[in-house]
Design a protein around this nucleic acid. Sequence first.
DNA 1: GGTTATATATAAGAAAGTTATATATACAGG
DNA 2: CCTGTATATATAACTTTCTTATATATAACC
Lengths: 108, 108
Amino acid sequence: MAPKKDLIKGTLRLIVLKLLAENTRMYGYEITQRVKELTNDEIELTFGALYPTLHKLEAEKILVAKTVVIDNRARKYYSLNKEGVKTAKREIAEYFTFTKSLNLVLKP
Amino acid sequence: MAPKKDLIKGTLRLIVLKLLAENTRMYGYEITQRVKELTNDEIELTFGALYPTLHKLEAEKILVAKTVVIDNRARKYYSLNKEGVKTAKREIAEYFTFTKSLNLVLKP
DNA sequence: GGTTATATATAAGAAAGTTATATATACAGG
DNA sequence: CCTGTATATATAACTTTCTTATATATAACC
């Protein structure tokens, strides 16, 4: 099966929140690779969606970015603050509540 | 908990496909009530989203509509054709495949 | 007579993706 | 040395799909 690039909208934000809630810092490229690895190549994030999502979390003031130069390449690390971790937990819990309800309709 | 009106985008189409795949015909209002009932008031569809979704399936030629007058009120019945039932099965299967992958990231 | 339930539908706007494009370095193979 | 692949960030144009607001109309109940 071809790796799925198109997400059900709203889930990219959850993926980012989850990974950053359990890792003190990650950079964009790393997030895409981690997701690909965790899902056995099934989910491949696009940068055109990832960066706007990260920047939005930054605008919401629940994420902070820090640029570091490694091997002459700029690398931008993202971290959630305390509020961000709380947001992550809340939104992921809401997602599971929603899919539970949705499955009452979609289940065979 | 307040009933959830906002869906994760893309799931409304799945809900409609699923209900119409297992019922020979349903009308719009009936779909909203059935979903509310099946999910114990957790998911409430809005008409502003439902009707465009139904009309889109019609434009895709996998759904047919038939207006009937009952108690002096116009009622519009929607049915999937054979292709529509196949589409329903395929897209719902794809959804479950996707959420399975997604859960590899989101699970605690 | 007024509110609630039944019934369909469109328009304006927002949100969140896809696809295409731009830029730049490091490293391996031929 | 040159080329392709991997690493790395980012924006712009566009599309899809919702939310919210609005319009219209009848039936049933109190």
